[in-house]
Design a protein around this nucleic acid. Structure first.
Lengths: 112, 112
DNA sequence: CTAATATATTCCTTTACTGGAATTTATGCA
DNA sequence: TGCATAAATTCCAGTAAAGGAATATATTAG
């Protein structure tokens, strides 16, 4: 049946993609790059996120391996940017939904 | 700055949502419910996925706690259905992107 | 050649989560 | 009342992955 929303062959990959997005620091990094809408060096991202350099580097390397980011080396610096155009929409959808949930809960609290 | 794509306050929750979606069996369950576009009992889902009852139950309970599913009990049966309308779009986006990646790789292989 | 800067990698400990097996709880039926 | 069915829960062992610290690699400047 080709009418599957998630084709059997993609199941593992889809899960993997979500797993990659399931870490706050990685979302922070992606968020920075989306807001900047440009490539950013590791150091810039370290500063923006306040995380350890080694840690940031690990997460960037991981996301690059997953195909979410691309890496460009220039001199001693390495620039990363988002390679997956769907990331923006995905995050927008999830955030929209979660914001709704938060708002509904607030409403409930206020009503009580 | 309110122009953040992922607001700081939502960061943890967004990550959590992605983590919930990062398990193949859970995606299978969601897929079934989306394809059926109706609620399904635990047993139905056990049959469709071929997984252990206890395991299916655990994952359903988890997703219900997360607000992705709703639980309705009728007699001795429990029916679950998708409560989060964004799930469909999110999965569609990710699948579309990953299918593209797969296709590009195939192309590369054939060219060589 | 040496020091400094930028990034990546390795090692380690800790934590979180998964599935299996067994058990418990709840409901319906004889 | 007791049995069967449906679902949930508990306990457990195995695994994966995260962050910290230290170190390695690469590039540029002096």
């Amino acid at each position: 049946m080709a009418s599957q929303l998630i084709p059997e062959e993609l199941l593992e990959r889809v899960a993997q993609r979500f797993k990659t997005l399931s870490e706050p620091i990685r979302l922070q990094l992606l968020n920075q790059m989306m807001v900047t809408s440009d490539e950013m060096s590791v150091m810039q991202l370290v500063e923006e996120t306040g995380q350890q350099q080694a840690n940031v580097s690990k997460h960037l390397t991981l996301m690059a391996r997953e195909g979410i980011l691309v890496r460009r080396k220039e001199g001693q610096k390495v620039y990363y940017r988002i390679n997956d155009p769907s990331i923006h929409g995905i995050c927008t959808l999830v955030c929209g939904r979660l914001q709704q949930e938060v708002d509904s809960n607030l409403e409930l609290v206020e009503k009580s």
